[in-house]
Amino acid sequence: MELVLAIGIGVLTSCGVFLMLRPRTFQVIIGLSLLSYAVNLFIFSMGRLMVGAAPVTASGTIDPTHFTDPVPQALVLTAIVIGFAMTALFLVVMLAARGVTGTDHVDGREQR
């Protein structure tokens, strides 16, 4: 299980990094999204993988070993929402730059 997820994270990272180095803004925005999936999964995996142990406890005393780590989950939850905000901001900047410069190259002008 761990291996599969680790490879998944690796591939998402690779695709993300590759796309972020491309010249077109749309490629960069897709790359950024892929990279944030990878990073979110990576942070999430730092709490180790457990099946059927959601951190939803019961009233009364509980045994913490029966639940998965809630800290990375809380971090990733806000990261997902902020990731949306970042994508939105980047998209708008990208559209505005395209309108102003007339090109969708990341440098605002075609490369010679």
Binding site: E2, L3, L5, A6, I7, I9, G10, V11, L12, T13, S14, V17, A38, F42, S45, M46, R48, L49
Partner: peptide, 13 residues
């Protein structure tokens, strides 16, 4: 970069 992330993620997990 991908290989690095895989190795780190796997090593930690």
């Amino acid at each position: 970069a991908g290989v690095g992330m895989t190795v780190i993620a796997y090593a930690v997990m």
